[in-house]
Amino acid sequence: LCGDMCHVFSIIVLLLRLRVARNAQGISLRTHELFLLVFLTRYTDLFTTFYSLYNSVMKVLYIASTSSIVYAIRLQEPICSTYDRAQDTFRHWAFAVAPCAVLALLTHLISGGSLFSFVDIQEMLWTFSIYLESIAILPQLIVLQRFREVENLTGNYIFFMGSYRALYIVNWIFRAYYEPGYRHHYVVYFCGVLQTLLYADFFYYYLMSKRRGGKFSLPT
């Protein structure tokens, strides 16, 4: 629950950041397009499996809020005209989506899956989303490096986004010990750790700047 709330909080902070400041400076559209793709490919089970009301509501909430973030940065005046396309340069289709798709296909085939049923395709899309989420923040980290001086709200949003997956690691350890019949999913574990590590450097400078109480900027 803490992990999910960090995730929700990071989305709220980002929406506030866009709506209140009415600009998208220092924000990577590409990262949010990747997250939208992550949610759309992971939550196809909205139509096939019901876990709980909480689970379904959150899934719909993530898809809706991320869509609205992408919409605002792409199309909504005056926000979209402040989006700095020239700084958001990570080639996310070639270096994130394509490799994750190949990796998901390989994982699926190696673990004995086929490609001939809806459930198989769904399973592969789910694996793809796990891989893609782990690196979806990369375009945003690149933009951050370019701007160096990080606005408070932008910094907070990335901090909560990183904390969310870190707390999931705690959750997996807890479930592995205390939940009878919990199956290990090593792809999920590996990607969760990778995802958290990608934030490690950012966490360090973020916490240092909070302790000093000053402005937050990244080193060159």
């Binding site: 999910d4 689970n55 009878p180 019949g181 919990y182 199956r183 999920v188």
Partner: peptide, 10 residues
């Protein structure tokens, strides 16, 4: 308990 994995997570 029933067999479960991370698919019931977000």
């Amino acid at each position: 308990g029933k067999d479960q994995d991370a698919k019931d997570e977000l």
